[in-house]
């Protein structure tokens, strides 16, 4: 690889891959518990209401600084989940319907506020909110591999990546530290309560973790990809193992792999086919994650559709 190409790679491609993988990793770890609690769609709802939260924070503070946006989005996530519970309970509606009412309404409000305010000028628009802007991340500084760890080069890391790293790091720490608590409250809320682990508050904590990862990932990869990362890697891992700890780490690996592969495909596949330009990286990461999940759903050794039908088939054969 010539120096110029390497420098380009380190400046343009590496930060995008880093951001994509970090976002995917953080979301996937949280997603394991969402899936086991049958709350995968809470991830969906939360990633939609991040937008109104951010817009409101922008309108109130007038800046696009990270902290107010994070707080605004978190507040929106908590309000949304609270409203869903309230409507479900008081209106005697199924969760899905209550969710549909709440997140579409909040998202609609967010879009309206965005269109009516000056937010459009401030790098806030619905397209970015949905697609993300991985491609816009630049790491100005590194010239070769050895330069990556130099302090002055590290200082040039885009803010988004620093925030993603911090958030994903804290998610990893949280999962390790609270593994036992998350496990018991997910498996058996009544027992958790009985043993002094208040399942309701652990549930609220999980919603907050979902909100934090969604906001952090949102800037880089957009809200729809956030949903893909909450669900696809854990669902893939779920097909492959019956051991919770193994499932969690497996999902993390799958997420990082999807991040790297998806970005590389988006950036370089068009060139392989002789066309110019590149494809949307966030979308491609979701597609790669979906493909990996499809492979697992079909060919997983024990729970894949092929193995299952083979098992049923062999049972039938052994009966005759």
């Amino acid at each position: 690889m010539s120096d110029v190409i390497l420098a380009d790679f380190l400046t343009i491609d590496l930060p995008a891959m880093l951001a994509g993988s970090l976002a995917a990793l953080g979301c996937a770890l949280v997603g394991n518990f969402l899936i086991l609690r049958r709350q995968a769609l809470i991830g969906d709802a939360i990633s939609h209401v991040v937008l109104p939260g951010i817009v409101l924070a922008f309108i109130v503070t007038g800046t696009i600084a990270a902290l107010p946006m994070m707080l605004g989005a978190l507040a929106a996530a908590v309000v949304a989940v609270g409203l869903i519970e309230l409507i479900r309970h008081l209106g005697r509606l199924e969760t899905g319907a209550a969710m549909g009412v709440v997140f579409t309404t909040m998202f609609a409000g967010g879009v309206l506020m965005l269109e009516r305010s000056a937010g459009r000028g401030a790098h806030l628009d619905v397209q970015h909110a949905l697609y993300g802007s991985l491609e816009a991340l630049l790491w100005l500084g590194p010239t070769d591999w050895a330069s990556l760890l130099r302090p002055e080069v590290l200082a040039e890391l885009p803010d988004e990546i620093v925030m993603l790293a911090a958030v994903t790091g804290s998610i990893i720490a949280t999962v390790v530290l609270f593994y036992k608590e998350l496990k018991i409250s997910t498996f058996d809320a009544a027992l958790a309560d009985a043993l002094g682990y208040p399942s309701k508050w652990i549930g609220v904590g999980l919603v907050l973790a979902t909100g934090i990862t969604a906001v952090a990932a949102f800037q880089a990869v957009g809200s729809i990809l956030v949903i893909a990362m909450f669900i696809c890697p854990p669902a893939t891992a779920r097909m492959l193992t019956d051991n919770l700890a193994r499932q969690i780490w497996l999902s993390g690996g799958i997420a990082v792999l999807a991040g790297v592969l998806g970005y590389l495909l988006a950036a370089f596949a068009p060139q392989l086919f002789g066309t110019v330009g590149s494809l949307n990286a966030a979308g491609m990461i979701a597609v790669v994650a979906g493909l990996m999940q499809t492979l697992a759903m079909l060919f997983a050794p024990r729970y894949g559709a092929v193995a299952q039908s083979g098992f049923v088939g062999s049972l039938k054969r052994s009966k005759t």
């Binding site: 036992k180 018991i184 027992l191 958790a192 009985a194 043993l195 682990y197």
Partner: peptide
């Protein structure tokens, strides 16, 4: 899991 109460947080 029945022992989690005695094991304690973290």
């Amino acid at each position: 899991m029945g022992l989690y109460g005695r094991i304690g947080w973290f």
